[in-house]
Design a protein around this nucleic acid. Structure first.
Lengths: 227, 227
DNA sequence: CATAAATTTAATCGAATGATTAATGAAAAG
DNA sequence: CTTTTCATTAATCATTCGATTAAATTTATG
C-alpha cells in the first residue's frame, strides 16, 4: 500500500520540476542525483552483490529509507544505473556510425578515441558491465533487450559497415577486426587494476600510456586490415 | 577452541593420504575437492560477494558445516581458490618464458595459444580475477604479493624479454605490445558473455571463432612489431 | 569387537542486510 | 497563518547469511 502511493506521488513530479522549484535553481545537487552518483561509484567498483544499501546511503550522506523512497529497492536502483550506463556507451558509438561523411578508417579511429576518452573518466565501467552480465546473463538480456537489435543494426554481418569492411579490405571475418578494436581500446581499462599492481605505474603515467594508444590503435588496426 | 583443534587435526592428514586410505583408491572425489570444485564454479561466475555458502554447499551436495570444517571460512576457501587460480595462470606463462630454445616471436605465439587453450576450458576465469581485484585491490596485493615480483622478473622494463623486443624490433614501449597480446587473447573471453548475447553465436561457432584467433593473433602482433 | 578418531548432519546463533513504518521537519498551496 | 504535500529521519522488522555447536555416523586402529 505504502509503496503504491509513494510511486504514484513521484510520478507527478518530474526531476526537472523538482530541481527548479524545491531546491531552488541548481543550488545543490538533488538528493535523487546524490544517491545515484554514490550508487554508481559503488556498483562500478564492488558490483551489485558487493554493494550494500547502507554503504550507498553513507556515501550519499543520506538515510537508507530515502534510497527506497526514491528508488523503491536496491534492485530498481541498480537497473536504472545499468540502463543509463548502457545507453551512455552505445549512444557514443551510435552517433559515430550514423555520420555519412566519415570513411571506415575514420570511424574505426573515432571508436578508439571515444572509448578511451570516455573510459578515462569511468575506468571501472567496462568491468562492471561485463561481470554483471557474467553473473546473470539471462536477467540482463531480459532487461536490456534493445541491445541485441542495436548491435545487429550496426555490426551484424549484413550491416552496411561490416559489408564495407569486407569489400574495401580483403578480410574473411570482419567481426575479428571489430573485436580487436574493442579489445585494444577497452581491455587496458578492464585490466587496469591488475595492470596498476604489476607495473607500479602512477596515475599520470597510466594516463599517458592510454593517451598514446589513441594514436597507436588505429595504426595497428590499419595494419591488420592490410595484412 | 574448536577451530584450533580442528585445524591441527587436519594438518596431520595430507590430501594424498586421505585420498588413498580413506576413500579407497580414487573411488570417488574427496569431499574437500567436491567443495572446491563447486566453489570455483560459483566464485568464477558470481564473484565472492555474489556467492553464498549455502549455494556452494548445495552445488557440492554437502552440508554448510562441512565447508567450514574443511576450509574454516568462506574467505579462506576463496583465498585458496584465488591462489590456485593465479598460480595456474602464471605457471603456464612462466614455463614458456624459461625456454631458451624459442625466439621472441615463438614465445609470443606460445602465449596466445596457451592463453586461448586454457581459457577455453575456464572461460569465466579472467573476468573473475579482474573484477575481484577491482573490488579490493589492496587486499589482493596483500595476499598475492608474489605476483609483483614475478611480473617484474619476466616483463619488467629491464627484463631479458623486454630488452630483446626493444632491440630486435624498433618499438618505443614494448609494454604496449605485451598488453596488446594479452588484450587480443584474453578480451574475447572477458567479453564473452556480452559477445554471446550480441552475436547470437552458439557454443560451436564461438569455439571456432576463438580457435581461428590462435593463428591470427601472432600474425597481427608481428605486423604491429614491424610497422 | 571395542575404542578412538575423523567425517557428516541437523539445529541454531548472532550479525548483516534490505526493506518498512511511524513520526518529524521543511516547503508549497490556499 | 493554516493546511496539505513532500522530504527526511530514527527505529525496527523479517530474512538472509556466515559460522558454530553438539550429536550422529562412518572409518580407522588396537
Amino acid at each position: 500500500m505504502f509503496l503504491k502511493i509513494c510511486l504514484i506521488k513521484r510520478k507527478n513530479i518530474t526531476f526537472a520540476e523538482n530541481f527548479n522549484t524545491r531546491n531552488g535553481m541548481n543550488k545543490d545537487i538533488s538528493t535523487e542525483e546524490k544517491i545515484k552518483a554514490a550508487a554508481l561509484q559503488l556498483f562500478y567498483k564492488k558490483g551489485y552483490a558487493g554493494t550494500k544499501t547502507r554503504d550507498i546511503a553513507d556515501e550519499a550522506g543520506i538515510n537508507i529509507a530515502l534510497l527506497n523512497y526514491y528508488f523503491r529497492s536496491k534492485e530498481k536502483l541498480f537497473e536504472i544505473i545499468m540502463e543509463e550506463t548502457l545507453h551512455r556507451i552505445f549512444r557514443g558509438v551510435s552517433a559515430l556510425f550514423d555520420r555519412k561523411d566519415l570513411s571506415i578508417m575514420e570511424k574505426l579511429e573515432g571508436i578508439a578515441c571515444s572509448y578511451i576518452d570516455s573510459l578515462a573518466e569511468n575506468p571501472n565501467l567496462p568491468l562492471f558491465v561485463l561481470s554483471e552480465i557474467q553473473a546473470d546473463a539471462t536477467g540482463f538480456v531480459k532487461k536490456n533487450a534493445f541491445i541485441q537489435n542495436f548491435f545487429k543494426d550496426k555490426f551484424g554481418m549484413d550491416s552496411a559497415f561490416m559489408q564495407e569492411i569486407k569489400t574495401e579490405f580483403n578480410v574473411d571475418n570482419p567481426l575479428q577486426i571489430v573485436i580487436n578494436l574493442v579489445a585494444l581500446s577497452v581491455f587496458p581499462f578492464v585490466a587496469r587494476p591488475m595492470f596498476a599492481i604489476l607495473t607500479n605505474m602512477n596515475e599520470e603515467e597510466m594516463k599517458q600510456f592510454m593517451e598514446n594508444r589513441k594514436k597507436l590503435i588505429p595504426k595497428w588496426i590499419k595494419c591488420m586490415l592490410e595484412s
